[in-house]
Write a protein that binds this DNA or RNA. Structure first.
Lengths: 110, 110
DNA sequence: TTGGAAACCTAGACAGTCTGGGTAACAAAC
DNA sequence: GTTTGTTACCCAGACTGTCTAGGTTTCCAA
């Protein structure tokens, strides 16, 4: 009943998507599934967050899209990481680890 | 030049404020200073984020305000944690650690 | 008496997420 | 061969939290 907190941290989705594409290209729902799986089912990505994020990332030139066919024989848009995307991923990880370190300093005060 | 990433993670401010009030009451700017200091200067809280957050927290009944006088002899609004606020802090820390664990699972994949 | 700093406050813009819709295409069941 | 379910994509609108950029009042020091 209570309003549950989201299972995502605002502002981290772009980073997670880039990470999910690190090795192979994937289509939208495949990316969401992969994030959920990699996070051991802790994180969950809604479609209404996913697609806007993908457009953002594509507009920034961090991923590139191409139409293809999914395992289930349906048309699907495959995204793959660009070189700039790789750099961006590194930068975002860097930033994330820095800030979470700050938060953890605060939280760990007795 | 480049648009710097914020030195705060969206959605964590409430938790940080509650944490900063854990032991003693403090006034607004004092809370911001304390967060910055506890985080070893990694985090920084803007006034335009701080005050709205304080009203939110007060409206939720997690903190309680009282007018007082600051060290510098200026009038200041001192906030202190309520019992509900303490519970809330615990819940938010729990949630934070759960979600960041998920994110770290994702990021740590080779 | 002017200036700076401490402390508070607010409006408006903005970004990212979520809810809740929707379409199209294929597969399987009947 | 039509219905039903699933996969995959898409979008509008609401909402939340943060930031920018203003502002006021009060105190202290030059």
């Amino acid at each position: 009943m209570g309003k549950e907190k989201p299972d995502l941290v605002y502002g981290t989705l772009d980073m997670l998507i880039l990470k999910a594409l690190q090795h192979d290209p994937r289509h939208g729902l495949g990316i969401a599934d992969r994030i959920q799986q990699m996070s051991k089912d802790i994180l969950h990505v809604e479609q209404g967050s996913l697609y806007p994020a993908l457009y953002r990332l594509e507009a920034q030139g961090w991923i590139k899209a191409e139409w293809g066919v999914s395992d289930n024989n349906r048309r699907a848009r495959y995204y793959k990481l660009t070189a700039a995307g790789r750099r961006q991923l590194a930068a975002e990880q860097e930033h994330w680890s820095r800030i979470t370190k700050g938060i953890d300093f605060v939280l760990s005060k007795a």
